[in-house]
């Protein structure tokens, strides 16, 4: 078992990945990881769902290869009304998602870095309805400092392996 899978099991065993278990809501970051796909037009697309009674976005963590145009299809499979307020250059975007609704969001985001979005009605955010858009990549070479490559932090697993 990998360290990551072990950590995931610990979360499940602790009952932190469900509503009204140990906690009242569902702990942030306990959903799945998904990946956007880049189309021939350069737009990166993915579908995000709100499963019934889970109060999470699935995938909860959406990995996007680089900054640019992102198109999300948002589907509410829950039997309650939610929404999504999403980061976007120029202004946040909002979409209202009544029970059993489907819509889209076109976003423009810089990378690298990660952003959170959420359902801003009631305390959906506190119950778990937050999603992360994780944008990978590097800035262009011309934006980098004029210096030799520098050491970056190691992952915990790398550090443990070294020690």
């Amino acid at each position: 078992m990998t360290a990551e899978a072990g950590a995931r099991n610990e979360v499940v065993e602790a009952g932190l990945d469900r509503q009204n278990g140990v906690t009242l809501g569902r702990l942030m970051g306990t959903g799945s990881v998904g990946y956007a796909e880049e189309g021939s037009d350069g737009v990166m697309r993915a579908t995000v769902r709100i499963p019934e009674d889970q109060l999470i976005f699935e995938p909860q963590i959406l990995v996007v290869p680089h900054g640019g145009e992102i198109e999300l299809t948002l589907i509410n499979d829950d039997k309650n009304t939610h929404c999504a307020v999403l980061p976007c250059n120029a202004d946040n975007k909002i979409i209202w998602l009544v029970n059993h609704a489907k819509g889209t969001a076109r976003l423009k985001l810089d990378g690298p870095g990660h952003y959170y979005y959420g359902s801003t009605t009631g305390n959906d955010e506190g119950r778990g309805l937050n999603g992360a858009i994780v944008i990978g990549g590097e800035v262009p070479d011309e934006a980098k400092l004029d210096r030799p490559p520098q050491p970056r932090p190691q992952s915990q697993a790398q550090a443990q392996a070294q020690s």
Binding site: A90, D91, T104, A105
Partner: peptide, 10 residues
């Protein structure tokens, strides 16, 4: 599904 349309600027 109900058509939720497209997200709009806040």
């Amino acid at each position: 599904y109900v058509d939720a349309g497209e997200a709009v600027p806040h």
